[in-house]
Structures are given as structure tokens and as C-alpha cells.
Design a protein around this nucleic acid. Structure first.
Length: 270
DNA sequence: TCCCAGGCTCTCT
DNA sequence: AGAGAGCATGGG
């Protein structure tokens, strides 16, 4: 890739990405589209991203924010040529990669990811986004006209009545309990990055409202575990139809990336 | 009115 | 260990 700081932003060139697919296929929930520009809030920083001919332009940030926040977020270090070359050995994945280009795995903030996927339980994407937005406006910090995702410590002090207009339903008590566990340090999400996947899952599943699927989402989308493979109802159906005898074993270390292609495909099927 | 949505928990075998 | 109901809410 090719990084250039210009026009009060960062131009990341020679950087293959299907920006729309990456931001919209259910790994992140806070990216809106205004004209041709994507707007989000990443680790408390308001973000404006445009697709360019061979990469992306991130507006209104300097070197420091780029390397502190966005470099990691967009998984810029990872070699997707190599990752996708493995997936392309499979005929169906090859067709999906041809169709969708490069869908990247975002490295998101762990608490935001955990909380967002607790909210995702038995829910649809528009409603997940709406609940997260309402929570951010009510309990997050305002920065430049936008709201950061609320800290665990802020949510841990609330009770279910405070969530009245958030309309998170039965998930409300899980959110508050999870916030307590994380803000108290009972579980340290950052430290899970160093542990084996099975141990990460086991630890995360101690949190109420978190089963294996949500634990795997947290591992894949925020703990840099591309070997995590969240199975929701869509993926379950896709596996039964296309991989009745299981995924190719050579996918193992990067099957999370394959999962995003299968998920994107299942969204488009409807 | 029923079905579905990036599931999980609790209970009953 | 495995199956099934219940869980809040809103859109189709």
C-alpha cells in the first residue's frame, strides 16, 4: 500500500477494498453514507472516508490519528492478496471474491463490538443500528457534532429505567451486566488477544447475553482473530447448502474472512 | 395475524 | 447433550 498525507487527510492508495461491503455487511453498525462520503465514529474520533480509484481517502485527520486509530481499524497491515489466494482455491469462494472484491475485516474497539453484538441478538440490522445510535446520543460523549460509543463505565452506572427510550428490549439487562463486568476489570478484553481462541470464547461466554456466536463476533471483529467463525442463522444455512461436509481445512486460520463473504452473499440472496 | 431478525437462557428430558 | 419455549421490539 501507499500512504500519503495531503489535503488535511490521508490518502491510502494501492489498497484494495470494497468499502461499501466492508462497512455495511454486519460487522460495524455506525457508518452512514452522505453523498459519496462515509461517516462514522471510530474509537471516539469522527471519521469521514471516501473511496478513491485504488484505495480510500480519510478526511480531516493527521498522522497521529491515522497511525493510532485508522491504520489498525482498516486492517491495513494484513495481506489480503495472500489471504484471498487461499480462499480462491475453493470454487464458491472464488466466485464470491470475483463478485465482491476485497471485503476487509475491521479491527474495532472491543467493548463497542461486544456491546453491539449483545444488541444484535435476535435482531435485524436497521434496528441494531438504531439502538446503538440512540445509546450513543444519550450516553456517549459529543465530539465535533457526533457521539462516541458509550464507555462501559458510563453504562455500568445505569439501571434499566434509564434505557426507556432506547428500546433494547430484553437485551437491556445484558448490556448493563456486561458493562459492569468490563468496567470493573473482571474481564480484560485487550488481554484476550494473546490467548487461544477457545479460551477467548470461554471467557467471553461468562458474560450474560453472550453465547458462542457473539463471542466469535467479538474475537473476529475486535480481537484480531481471523480464525474465529461466527455461525448465525444465515451462515448455518449457507454451510448446509454449500459445505455440507464442512469448510476446506486449509481455510482454518482465516475462516473468519470466508465467513464475511458467505454472510454478504446471504444478505444479497434475499 | 403471523413471521422474521448476525441468539441466549432456562427448563425439561 | 439436546430440544423447545420465552424473551422485547418493529417491519413486512
Amino acid at each position: 500500500m501507499d500512504i500519503e498525507f495531503k489535503n488535511n487527510g490521508v490518502l491510502v492508495g494501492d489498497f484494495p477494498i470494497n468499502l461499501d461491503a466492508t462497512l455495511d455487511c454486519g460487522q460495524a453498525f455506525r457508518w452512514e453514507k452522505e453523498g459519496g462520503v462515509r461517516r462514522g465514529v471510530v474509537k471516539g474520533v469522527p471519521a469521514f472516508v471516501e473511496k478513491t480509484e485504488n484505495g480510500i481517502f480519510i478526511k480531516n485527520i493527521g498522522k497521529r490519528e491515522f497511525y493510532d486509530v485508522f491504520y489498525d481499524y482498516f486492517d491495513i497491515d494484513a495481506d489480503y492478496d495472500e489471504i484471498l489466494s487461499v480462499l480462491k482455491k475453493d470454487e464458491f469462494l472464488l466466485s464470491l471474491i470475483k463478485k465482491y472484491g476485497v471485503i476487509r475485516i475491521l479491527n474495532q474497539e472491543p467493548w463497542e463490538t461486544l456491546c453491539s453484538f449483545i444488541i444484535s441478538s435476535c435482531n435485524n440490522i436497521p434496528r441494531i443500528k438504531s439502538i446503538i445510535e440512540k445509546m450513543s446520543e444519550k450516553f456517549g460523549e459529543e465530539t465535533g457534532g457526533f457521539y462516541s460509543f458509550p464507555e462501559a463505565s458510563a453504562l455500568s452506572a445505569l439501571n434499566e429505567n434509564d434505557f426507556g427510550e432506547i428500546k433494547a428490549g430484553f437485551r437491556t439487562k445484558y448490556i448493563i451486566e456486561a458493562a459492569k463486568i468490563i468496567s470493573s476489570g473482571e474481564i480484560d478484553l485487550e488481554s484476550l488477544k494473546k490467548k487461544p481462541l477457545s479460551e477467548c470464547e470461554k471467557e467471553l461466554m461468562k458474560i450474560p447475553g453472550v453465547g458462542k456466536k457473539i463471542a466469535d463476533c467479538v474475537c473476529l471483529f475486535s480481537l484480531k482473530r481471523k480464525d474465529a467463525f461466527p455461525v448465525d442463522r444465515h451462515i448455518k444455512r449457507a454451510l448446509e447448502k454449500y459445505y455440507p461436509r464442512g469448510l476446506p481445512p486449509e481455510f482454518n486460520k482465516i475462516k473468519g474472512v470466508a465467513q464475511q463473504y458467505l454472510y454478504k452473499y446471504s444478505l444479497d440472496e434475499k
